[in-house]
Amino acid sequence: MKIAVLQFGGSNCDHDVHYVLTEVIGVDADLVWYKDELEGYDGVVVPGGFSYGDYLRAGAIAARAPIMNSLRRMADKGLPVVGICNGFQILVESGLLPGALMTNRYPKFRCEWVSLRVENNTSPFTNSFKPGEVIRIPIAHMEGNYFADEHTLSGLDSQKRVAFRYVDEKGNTTDEANPNGSVENIAGIINEQGNVLGMMPHPERASEQILGSEDGKKIFDSMVSYISSI
């Protein structure tokens, strides 16, 4: 098994994700520069950062890089792809996930721990969680305000494609617990085929107890066990 961690100019969580995969979990992973070939991998992580300086819109330029064609082919084949933070922005800009990520309701960069409720624990990324489990993972973004039209939202809801929602410590989706104004407190979504996840919180920053939480590690664990099973 080998997982690719994509690197664009301005990616800055690439090494953190690579470290968690190789050192904490112990699977084989490569950092793959966007001009290189994306071949022979069993899964892909599109990490966070500020690709292309957030020029035009966050994620817009990276989403049109040629390597995204290879990524799309892998996603079409059913291989697991996860986009974190700027990686989520890149996936929505590329059309691999629906909706858009807009400037936070209060237009400020927010870097803090949040509580998330696991809404779907049958996906390749969430199969290590209990249903409705409340987990702690930090966010760090200014454009994380998820928006989608009514039609898209009802599809996400009816097909259980919302992976995580922002909640308070008791697991309730309150307005106070919503750090960025996302519609229906959405923090992460899954594509129709079920093999592409985008999420604003950073699981790689919550994968060791010394950093305050191991909840994020379960997302990578789930992905690894899914790859082993296919």
Binding site: L56, R57, A60, R64, V92, E93, P98, G99, A100, M102, F147, A148, D149
Partner: peptide, 8 residues
């Protein structure tokens, strides 16, 4: 395809 995001 690039300049606008038709969603928003």
């Amino acid at each position: 395809r690039l300049l606008a995001n038709p969603v928003i």
